[in-house]
Amino acid sequence: MTSLRISSLFPRTPDGYIAFGLGAAACLASGILLLILIFVFGEAWPALRTIGVVRFLSDGAWYPTDGAFGLVPMLAASFALAAGALTIAAPVGVAVAIFRLHYAPGWMKAPYRGLVLLLAGTPSVVLGLWGLMVLVPLIARIEPPGASLIAGILVLALMIVPTVAIASEAALESVPRSCWSAANALGLGREAALLNVVLPAAREGIAGGILLAGARALGETMVVLMITGNIVQMPDGLFTPVRALTSNIALEMAYATGDHRASLFVSGLALTLLVFLLSFAAGTGRRRRHA
């Protein structure tokens, strides 16, 4: 009979050591965020100290080699791109989710889901290629040069529709069936039930998805780099070529040195902060819903 006391007869797996090793991995994984913040901030610090936050916002132009560090036109372009893309993608994405759950005929549901997932998995550089080769020439026919704010908005919208759709679908599916039955019992039709009962019930999940999609649009590099023209100027019309913060980093990192390089890290830091705020807002909505 086995003794209850710890014996060396049977080699036991040392749970303690393994837990320690696994815990170290978890620490490392969650420490990467800190590492990123430290390094991006560390590289940005010289610019923040010598140039100062104010000048990034008050300088009229972006000539970093001549000491002009105005980020405002690019900030504005980034916002305009993300906001424009969301304006299109939010309603379309929600509609697509509703379509797939409640309107599509049975045979269409699975292929349509495949299509949305395919689009979600399409690399942004392929979307950019398509925008550059197909969409930009079309827009150029309406108003040259074609590579412009509107081109970026349209392709970004196509890119983030799946994000909105997938999140909305999850939110709509989590609405209890009883909500539908109750609405039907009140004599509400499908559309009335959707508008009055189901969509409000799924509101927060959908909002979270939209914020997340906004964050993606704001942080996207390849699409905007390839099709918005990359000219630093305030976006004063849909057909204006603009340069976003992300594409600015991609364009200038290759040769930037000194304060110039540091100020690119500043714009990276600013971008990160903006995306933090958006995903934090999205997360708060989600957490509230689960609470």
């Binding site: 209850l4 006391r5 710890i6 014996s7």
Partner: peptide
Amino acid sequence: EVDGVDIHGPDVDVQALRRK
């Protein structure tokens, strides 16, 4: 106590206890 051994004792091997 199982077989006279306090199963919450500091030197008890839980895995051996559960085997028994």
